[in-house]
């Protein structure tokens, strides 16, 4: 039997028409233009910073880009950067994994059982509106000064964001898909694996993306208060010594790490959600 109405589909890559080629060329040009402007802006900002440091403002307060990059280079060579950064990354990663894992599982359970969700709703809202960072002193009391309290802070922050997003994602699942797969023979685990989890993926990823900076903030704040190692500790120590250059260098490292994690999640999102229209 011959195919008849396959014209609407694009499964096989057709030959590019000139219109398509022109459209793609325009898109590419635009992308380069944006990148160029971004670099130009960054460089002018650095130039302005360098100029104003010493000319307009006392370098004691704003340091200067050259000093910051020199410091970063120093730290990299001496191993000081990795020694502290690895600690921060480990605590963030662990807190992230614990918070996201528990948030995901509970989000799915609450999403599936509407009654439970309705019962707990006011309590969840109440805890959600607490600034999670305010929990840090409590965690330090419970877990003492060290890794555990930092992990607890970032886990608490990530938990709520992932939990609420997963929950909404599960509530959004189209019941048609659930019924259709059940009729085909799916048991509840099959429905979970092939319908609910994939359908909620977009929400879960959003939760993860939003919580990355918070997890980092949670760890760093933990390190401000109680640590002897980690980027937060480095920043706190430097500020106590009025070492502005080290403070800026620490902040720069955090900014770079945050952007890299987000870029990674964006790639994962693009792949996981490639089925979306």
């Amino acid at each position: 039997m011959d195919a008849i109405d396959n014209s609407a589909a694009v499964a096989q890559e057709p030959k590019k028409s000139t219109a398509v080629a022109r459209f793609q060329a325009r898109e590419t040009r635009r992308k380069w233009l944006v990148a160029g402007c971004q670099i130009a802006f960054g460089l002018s900002f650095l130039a302005f910073w360098q100029y104003s440091s010493g000319h307009l403002i006392d370098p004691f307060f704003v340091s200067s880009p050259i000093a910051v990059f020199a410091k970063l280079w120093d730290w990299t060579i001496s191993g000081y950067l990795w020694y502290n950064l690895s600690m921060t990354l480990f605590a963030t990663g662990l807190g992230f994994a614990i918070g996201a894992g528990i948030g995901f599982v509970l989000g799915i359970l609450f999403g599936r059982y509407k009654f439970v969700a309705d019962v707990f709703d006011p309590y969840i809202t109440a805890i959600y509106s607490l600034p999670k960072i305010a929990l840090a002193p409590l965690f330090i009391m419970w877990f003492g000064i060290g890794l555990a309290s930092k992990v607890a802070v970032s886990a608490a922050v990530v938990f709520f964001l992932v939990f609420l997003n997963t929950f909404s994602g599960v509530r959004e699942v189209n019941p048609i898909y659930i019924h259709a797969t059940q009729i085909m023979g799916a048991n509840s685990w099959n429905v979970m694996r092939t319908v609910i989890i994939p359908s909620a993926t977009a929400w879960v990823i959003t939760g993860l993306k939003v919580s990355v900076p918070y997890a980092l903030v949670g760890t760093v704040i933990g390190e401000f208060m109680s640590a002897n190692r980690g980027i937060g500790f480095v920043i706190a120590q430097a500020s106590a010594l009025f070492d502005t250059t080290s403070v800026f260098t620490g902040l720069l490292v955090l900014a770079i790490v945050g952007s890299l994690i987000n870029a990674g999640l964006k790639l994962a999102e693009g792949w996981l959600l490639r089925w979306r229209p």
Partner: peptide, 20 residues
């Protein structure tokens, strides 16, 4: 083959028409 979609095995539904 029966529904003559053998060339679309790897396509996602968004790439298909309603009839497909």
């Amino acid at each position: 083959e029966l529904v003559s979609l053998e060339h679309f095995a790897h396509a996602f539904p968004k790439e298909l028409s309603g009839g497909m």
